[in-house]
Write a protein that binds this DNA or RNA. Structure first.
Length: 300
DNA sequence: AACCCGGGGCT
DNA sequence: AGCCCAGGGTT
């Protein structure tokens, strides 16, 4: 048996903070349907796309409806894009529904109706980026991978680097630190990925962290430094009222609820919207492939 | 690197 | 009323 060098020993001994998060997760994990033993890779993929920028409580009912209607990629591939966009409801960012539907078509055509498990194949799917590819590999297939969403970035930034909030863009150093923290064994890596994400979502939240209940409160570099910098950290304010995004959302809502085409260029429900902005929203939605325009009006 | 893209619930 | 949030694609 070869002697183990100190550096290798260090690299393979999990940081005790990682172990603490894993233990906490085994005690406190929420019961979510896409975490059940009977979950499918397709269900996990759908959940991850829905959870991009949308909180769990809003995703739950829509995910259940999708799984009931379209339990496999083949089922969704037999539906229309309009069906998918309607069933998306008010989750927001409806391009995700379109891409999920396109995803189902690709899975049928190129992967025999199954979700692939390699990073390369996953990244080639529409709407699947770096985060979602890692999440599907970890949570659907139990593979060891790096999953670096905003929650995990915040937990690592605070507990290991004493930083109040993650920077706008990932750095190489951050990526390497995150990589070094992922346990070597696949099951432990999955528990770390899910657990650090859960900790960030429930306890180590962005603006009002519940440090008193945190399993890392005695080991957190940020707390040890006096929890600096949170109040004066820049806020990402995003206007909403009167924006193009709001108008697009209103148009999508009108079309979801309409059975036939709508003459939206002169629709009374959009009377309060500036004509230029209305036109911009409509042409943008057509360009995005979310709606179509015909002689009798717009439809999904 | 910068920009665009929803929406609801909480404080 | 303001603030928060399980990203991805395009330019």
């Amino acid at each position: 048996m070869p002697p183990t060098s100190p550096t290798r020993e260090t690299a393979h001994t999990p940081d005790h903070r990682v172990t603490t998060v894993i233990d906490w997760f085994h005690r406190e994990a929420r019961d979510l349907p896409w975490r059940e033993a009977d979950r499918t890779p397709w269900g996990v993929l759908v959940s991850e796309v829905m959870l991009q920028q949308t909180p769990v409580v809003r995703v739950l009912p829509v995910w259940r409806e999708w799984m009931e209607r379209w339990p496999t990629p083949r089922d969704l591939a037999h539906a229309t894009q309009a069906d998918a966009v309607r069933a998306w409801g008010r989750l927001g960012y409806p391009r995700r529904a379109k891409r999920l539907w396109e995803c189902a078509l690709v899975l049928v055509e190129r992967h025999n109706g199954h979700v692939p498990s390699s990073r390369e194949d996953l990244l080639a799917l529409p709407g699947i980026g770096d985060y979602t590819a890692g999440a599907v590999r970890a949570f659907a297939f139990g593979e060891r991978d790096i999953v670096l969403d905003t929650n995990i970035r915040r937990v690592i930034g605070r507990a290991w680097r004493a930083e109040p909030l993650p920077a706008a863009h990932q750095t190489r150093a951050e990526r390497e630190l995150a990589d070094s923290l992922v346990p070597a064994s696949a099951p432990a890596s999955v528990a770390w990925n899910a657990g650090s994400m859960e900790l960030g979502a429930l306890v180590c939240t962005a603006r009002a962290p519940k440090c008193a209940e945190c399993p890392l409160r005695h080991d957190c570099a940020w707390i040890a430094a006096g929890s600096p910098g949170l109040d004066d950290a820049p806020r990402r304010t995003q206007a909403w009222h009167g924006t193009d995004r709001q108008v697009r959302g209103r148009i999508m809502a009108l079309l979801r609820e309409s059975r036939g085409p709508l003459a939206l260029d002169e629709h009374c429900a959009l009377d309060d919207v500036d004509a230029d902005q209305r036109h911009r929203a409509l042409t943008g939605l057509v360009a995005d492939g979310l709606i179509t325009k015909a002689a009798d009006g717009y439809s999904l």
